[in-house]
Design a binder for these strands. Structure first.
Lengths: 152, 152
DNA sequence: TATGAAAGACCGCTCCC
DNA sequence: GGGAGCGGTCTTTCATA
């Protein structure tokens, strides 16, 4: 289950499905010169191994009115408050990612909001109400020129 | 094409497909008490409007040997070097995301590597060889407790 | 053990109501 | 927006190397 060593065919399939999860197996089969059955077997194996976790549609956040993307570095009063703080942050739907980091900040989060006013609201009325947080530092993202995944 | 106002049904469909892009339309239809044809029409509309951009399989980077995730704040010597720098960063497959930001850093990137040694290699032999970069600051991510998308 | 070919079930797409 | 038929895709099974 855990350590399935993937070969070149698996990598090719992964790459293709990372671009389009609904690509027909028959098409991949033709492209990689194997049969559709083989594609199916490989996909199932990678699912079993946990390499492929699932399929998601990617949405354009801007089209849904989320115009502002920013990162916020969070400093905690005490490191032990970390689990509680994550639990609280998770309740705010604007917080889409959180990382526990070494370096300048204790927690590093990615926040999506509809506007700068909305961001202010989230900062003041949501994030900074969390007791354990000592200070925050905001980095507003103006552009996102690179957005991809790791290459298998 | 641009400003398609989504309703509650659209939101429900989006939410479902964000969790599983291969969910059968018939199943969604049953769940939301509409017909499969309606699901199809809505999905097509949202595709046309650019709200749904595509489908991706989500992969477990750790299972592919990418154990180290980190963020690197990059400072440029001159702001005008931004486009060139992005172009160069894009060539390094370890750089999976890049943001042009206001605040402490000019560019903020997310980097995935196989190990700390690999990260060092990327930093020294790839990123810091870019002329326009004045300094970098690394935040290593130890955990990623929140990872989701915006709620429609 | 892994692959290839074919049959069956399922799903998505389209037309008409 | 709902329902039915067609075409395509996925899945399974069996034979093979």
């Amino acid at each position: 289950m855990n350590n399935y060593q993937i070969d070149n065919l698996d990598k090719s399939i992964l790459n293709a499905l990372m671009e389009n999860a609904r690509a027909p197996y028959a098409e991949l089969a033709k492209r990689f010169n194997v049969s559709a059955g083989t594609i199916h077997v490989r996909v199932e194996k990678m699912k079993q191994a946990g390499i492929m976790q699932g399929t998601r549609v990617t949405i354009d956040a801007k089209k849904l009115g989320y115009d502002v993307c920013c990162f916020i570095g969070v400093n905690l009063k005490h490191a032990r408050d970390y689990p509680d703080t994550i639990e609280q942050l998770e309740k705010f739907e604007e917080v889409v990612e959180a990382y526990y980091t070494t370096g300048n900040y204790s927690i590093f989060i990615k926040v999506m909001t509809h506007s700068i006013e909305h961001l202010q609201d989230v900062l003041i009325n949501k994030i900074q109400t969390i007791e354990a947080i000592q200070s925050t530092e905001t980095l507003i993202s103006l552009q996102n020129p690179i957005a991809r995944e790791v290459t298998p």
